[in-house]
Simulated assay, not measured.
Amino acid sequence: MGRGAQSKTSRMRFCRKERSGGYDEKMKRGVVILLSLAMCAGLCACGNPPQTVPTEEPGATLDAGQSTPTPSPAPSAPEQGISEQRAREIALADAGVSEDSVTAIRVKRDVEKGVYVYDVEFYAGGKEYDYEIAAADGSILKKDFEVEDHWYHGGSAPQTGISQEQAEEIALQRVPGAQAEQIRLNLEMDDGRMVYEGKIIHQEREYDFEIDADTGEIISWEEESVFD
């Protein structure tokens, strides 16, 4: 081979090396760029956790400005509170009334403003007493009494066809087992006629009634549980 041919061959090899070297440099740069982009994407993913879109339950929609209602907490049962009998004793002692002088009494457990209480209502000495006692410690929260008001004031009682004792017997016959000390009776004027208006509390039942004071006829009679 002549020198001209050898020189030409050498130049071709040199050009191939240059082209090969340039291609390798481009490949390296591309790999570096791809690695850099991958690292940036990984850092962004770590720094910004995915956010969840809140979902609404089917059918549960709120108007603008309306807040979700929160249920009122249920009152907790008193721990080692007083008994119904103890509430009864506290009320009678505060009123200065003996058990024997009570004509009728009712004790009902209730809830007032999230607090368990005993409502104690009784009649004695022509007065009606009403107490509200905390079931937790027996403290008296409220108390009240009023004098039974007849339609007449002073003087002798008006003449009637039946006596108060007879009216009591008529009412007690409607409640088997009830005793005279469980009845309360007043003589009043109602719609132009004389009536005995009364109440019987027996075996956790309350009976309200009216009896015609002239004929002894039962005009009205209602019955309900003392816990209603």
Rank of each mutant, 00 (worst) to 15 (best):
G2F: 12
R3Y: 04
A5R: 15
R13G: 12
R19E: 08
G21Q: 07
G21F: 00
Y23R: 06
D24S: 11
E25V: 06
M27R: 14
R29T: 13
L37D: 15
M39F: 15
A41N: 14
G47H: 12
P49T: 06
V53C: 05
T55L: 10
E57A: 14
P58G: 13
A64D: 07
G65Q: 13
Q66D: 13
T68Y: 12
P69G: 14
S72T: 15
S72L: 13
P73M: 05
A74T: 08
P78H: 04
P78G: 01
P78F: 02
Q80Y: 06
G81P: 09
G81E: 08
I82K: 00
S83H: 03
E84C: 03
Q85W: 09
R86D: 03
R86L: 07
R88F: 10
R88N: 08
I90G: 02
I90V: 01
A91Y: 03
A95E: 09
A95H: 10
E99L: 09
I105W: 09
I105L: 13
V107T: 09
K108N: 11
D110H: 09
V115Y: 00
V117R: 01
V117G: 02
V117A: 05
V120C: 05
Y123G: 10
A124Q: 11
G126E: 07
E128H: 11
Y129M: 01
Y131A: 14
Y131Q: 11
A136P: 01
G138A: 07
S139Q: 14
K142H: 02
K143H: 08
K143A: 06
D144H: 15
D144S: 15
F145P: 02
V147S: 09
D149A: 15
G154D: 14
Q159W: 00
G161I: 07
I162W: 08
S163G: 13
E165T: 13
Q166L: 08
A167Y: 04
E169Q: 15
E169I: 06
I170D: 00
A171D: 08
A171V: 07
A171F: 04
R174S: 08
V175G: 07
P176T: 04
P176L: 03
Q179G: 06
A180K: 10
E181I: 00
Q182D: 14
L185Y: 03
N186D: 05
E188G: 07
D190N: 13
M194T: 10
Y196D: 08
E197V: 09
K199I: 05
I201S: 07
H202Q: 05
H202P: 04
H202D: 03
Q203G: 10
E204C: 03
E206T: 04
E206P: 10
F209E: 12
E210K: 13
T215N: 06
G216A: 06
G216Q: 09
G216W: 03
I219L: 15
W221S: 01
E222P: 00
E222R: 05
E223T: 05
E224Y: 07
S225T: 12
V226E: 02
F227P: 00
F227E: 12
D228T: 15
